[in-house]
Amino acid sequence: MDAQVETATRELSYAQAIQEAMAIAMERDERVFLMGEDIGVYGGAFQVTGDLVERFGPDRVMDTPISELGGAGVAVGAAVTGMRPIFEFQFSDFATLAMEQIVNQAAKMRYMLGGAVSVPVVMRFPAGSGTGAAAQHSQSLEAWLGHVPGLKVIQPATPHDAKGMLLAAIEDPDPVMIYEHKILYKMKGEVPEGYYTVPIGKAEVRREGADLTIVATSIMVHKSLDAAKQLAEEGIDVEVIDLRTVRPMDRQTIIESVCKTSRLMCVYEGVKTLGVGAEISAMIAESEAFDYLDAPVVRLGGAETPIPYNPELEKATVPQVDGIVKAARELVTGAR
């Protein structure tokens, strides 16, 4: 990983931070280019590429036809032969159309060829609910890709990490899938100017605490931090870990935290069953931290349903601050 050369910071939105990372990467390395649907003059469905086409031209900010499978495969082929493509899915749900190229080709090519090639492709997935876009435009399927050896799957939760992790992803020799929660795009935060990377595979303790470890992903990091604030007023001291990377998972940070707090709750937006929380729970059950547990592990994940349209139903589908507070309180006080 490159040395951190952070300079002055200023406030940027998550979307701006990603755009800045792509611009810096394209300035630094002529092999880097962007592909995706309507990322050129339109600026991307969520305005993440914005005006980059004016700066870098249509050859480096390439609009593709509506061909997710083909487009993803073209990015894979370009990556194997020496380019550094960044492929934007308009919605993460559309990865379902491209799973063949992601799972069978990008993830396995290096292995199948005995190390003869690397596949340095980055794919960006605007994900998550909360936009009223209903069942086919709101999913959080990061656990699907997290299940595949050969891929790296990241979920930055802040503008700072979005920029630094995307730059790390572009530098990475292997395929990196970056899940960006759509509701976070407008969130602002301090972002250093210039080039820096945030390492893939390292979780971050966002808040230290003694009574309970919450491991959260993406937008749930912020909801968990809000919940932790409320719980602090009740005298419950919550540690919040931002997982940041689904694969490879930073087991050590979680194990150490659970050894300290003796309680674990996983909070994530993807469907609860067979999701990221299942992996974290099982990992803890297999680790030395198991002996430290004072209470059963709790998972708060998405409901076992497609994401509905009605805003109240939509909200009820994924963990919210009140639910996190309630579950954490029960977990901590119930064990006392």
Partner: peptide, 24 residues
């Protein structure tokens, strides 16, 4: 660049390799 176990799997990859040839 390899044989492929998926019917049609190599088609987009070839296009990507050709994109590299054009860009470079």
């Amino acid at each position: 660049l390899g044989a492929n176990g998926i019917v049609g799997g190599g088609l987009p990859i070839a296009v990507g390799a050709a994109l590299t040839a054009k860009k470079m």
